[in-house]
């Protein structure tokens, strides 16, 4: 039997073959989990939101039209779930709060050496603005093309690319001490 495409699977789910959602779960749950983990830094809530995304796919299966790629549809749901989560937990860090953290924390080099590299990276990621972090996660970790990201987030491709660029510069600023010298 030939493997079904994502589109065929989701269309089958829509038409009542709910078991097919299991295939999509197996294929994408880990990707989605990491998408949320890199933005929230919290395994427990990341799992909860993955659950929520699949629940929404199930609940709104009738609305699946299969225009465009399945992943665009899936990540649109994920993106909205992420926004909802931030709204609920009001997880917004004020700008001067970040500056304060940066100036009083041990120098990033120190932090970088003390903790593992990964931890430092997670920390740096958490300091990015939500917009920049999401675009970076989608392009670097989820390997989505800028065009697809632009459709998911509903903003122009140029904006997406600019955000990737600034996100990388910001990250570098958070990880190494060369802060102010980097042009933005």
């Amino acid at each position: 039997m030939r493997e079904m495409t994502d589109h065929q699977l989701m269309s089958a789910v829509r038409d009542g073959d709910l078991d097919k959602l299991g295939y999509l779960f197996e294929k994408y749950h880990k990707q989605l989990y990491n998408y949320f983990l890199r933005q929230l830094g919290d395994p427990q809530s990341s799992e909860d939101i993955v659950q929520e995304v699949f629940l929404k796919m199930l609940k709104y299966r009738h609305t699946y039209r299969g225009e465009g790629r399945f992943t665009t549809w899936m990540y649109s749901i994920a993106h909205n779930a992420r926004i909802d989560h931030f709204k609920k937990t009001s997880r917004y860090v004020a700008t001067d709060e970040i500056d304060r953290l940066l100036s009083t924390a041990p120098s990033p080099e120190e932090a970088f050496e003390k903790s593992s590299r990964h931890e430092a990276l997670y920390k740096a990621l958490s300091r990015l603005s939500d917009d920049k972090r999401e675009v970076l996660v989608l392009s670097r970790f989820q390997n989505l093309k800028y065009e697809e990201i632009s459709r998911i987030l509903g903003c122009p491709v140029g904006t997406i690319k600019a955000r990737v660029f600034h996100a990388l510069n910001d990250l570098r600023r958070f990880l190494y001490k060369s802060g102010g010298e980097v042009t933005r």
Binding site: Y33, V50, L121, L136, N169, L171, R172
Partner: peptide, 13 residues
């Protein structure tokens, strides 16, 4: 920076 990010492994739920 782009390369460094690539070092982050996927985590298992």
């Amino acid at each position: 920076m782009w390369r460094t990010l690539g070092e982050l492994p996927d985590e298992e739920p």
